Amino acid sequence: MVAKIVLWRHGQTDYNAEGRFQGHADIPLNDTGRAQAHAAASVLAGFGIDHIISSDLARAHETAEILSERIGVPVEKNSLLREISVGEWQGRTREEIAALWPDQLAAWFAGVDMRPPGGESRSESAARVTAAIREIVASAGEDETLAIVAHGAVLRGSAEVLLGLDGDDAGYLGVMANCGYGVLTPRRSSWVLRAWGISYDPATIA
């Protein structure tokens, strides 16, 4: 069994800064996001990471590459680690969505496990990413440390599934800020949450 998994959210993008729903839109990091990634990578470099696996979307892959360059471990892409698909909401702000789908947006923010028009539900995306993480863990070597670089909604959802916190009352964990990370360690048939939502503000970088 692996020693631990580090679940790391990508750095900030312009869509994040503008409050736009990203979904599967392939948006790169902005300068703030790159600064966040470098700050977090300086800490994660001391974790003894053996493998880095990232979503294939640019914002996650670029974040992962910044850690890769620091520690000399290549990045493996996995499209199953993509963010939740938000369908027709993709690229729109909350205000724009509220004008077109007010009831659906209200249900979304109330935590209802619903599908945005043309998208997938939180439970569907969490199941997809959890399955990918379990496969990654199963193929890893004994006592290895894995960094899984992905997206806020699906990292929270999959962590809750791994911790047994999913179901009708899901939502125990908060969505991590850009470049926040969490750490889980294994037990025989479950996982222990060691850290969640640790993040780095580029304003603090000297």
Score class of each variant (00 low, 15 high):
39 A>H: 06
73 V>H: 04
81 L>I: 11
144 E>L: 01
49 I>L: 10
42 S>F: 02
181 Y>G: 04
63 T>H: 07
93 T>S: 15
102 P>Y: 04
95 E>C: 06
133 I>Q: 00
31 D>L: 12
7 L>V: 04
116 P>C: 06
42 S>A: 15
202 P>W: 10
151 H>N: 08
24 H>V: 10
36 Q>S: 04
66 I>E: 03
167 G>I: 05
69 E>R: 14
168 D>F: 09
151 H>V: 04
59 R>S: 14
42 S>M: 08
169 D>P: 01
94 R>E: 15
206 A>D: 11
133 I>P: 00
48 G>H: 10
98 A>V: 01
83 E>T: 06
196 W>E: 12
80 L>Q: 15
139 S>I: 01
120 E>H: 09
52 I>T: 11
4 K>W: 00
103 D>W: 02
20 R>T: 12
60 A>C: 09
116 P>D: 06
205 I>F: 11
150 A>R: 00
87 G>C: 06
193 L>E: 13
128 R>K: 05
37 A>Q: 07
106 A>T: 15
49 I>Y: 03
42 S>I: 01
148 I>H: 01
7 L>P: 01
96 E>S: 12
98 A>Q: 11
104 Q>S: 13
47 F>Y: 14
143 D>T: 04
100 L>T: 14
177 A>H: 08
127 A>W: 01
171 G>N: 11
182 G>N: 08
149 V>Y: 01
119 G>H: 07
22 Q>H: 07
135 E>T: 15
118 G>N: 04
53 I>M: 03
14 D>T: 14
22 Q>P: 03
104 Q>I: 06
206 A>Y: 02
109 F>Q: 12
100 L>W: 03
19 G>I: 10
168 D>S: 15
189 S>V: 03
193 L>G: 08
138 A>Q: 10
53 I>T: 14
119 G>D: 01
197 G>N: 12
31 D>P: 02
181 Y>I: 04
13 T>M: 11
25 A>T: 09
138 A>F: 03
81 L>W: 08
93 T>E: 05
67 L>S: 10
97 I>M: 06
59 R>F: 13
57 L>G: 02
139 S>M: 09
103 D>M: 04
177 A>F: 03
159 A>V: 04
48 G>F: 12
48 G>L: 11
47 F>G: 00
41 A>D: 09
78 N>R: 15
9 R>I: 03
197 G>S: 08
138 A>W: 03
175 V>S: 04
1 M>H: 14
194 R>I: 04
139 S>G: 07
149 V>R: 01
180 G>V: 10
148 I>K: 00
20 R>Y: 12
38 H>L: 13
86 V>R: 07
43 V>P: 01
116 P>T: 07
107 A>M: 10
62 E>W: 05
53 I>L: 08
112 V>C: 11
53 I>H: 00
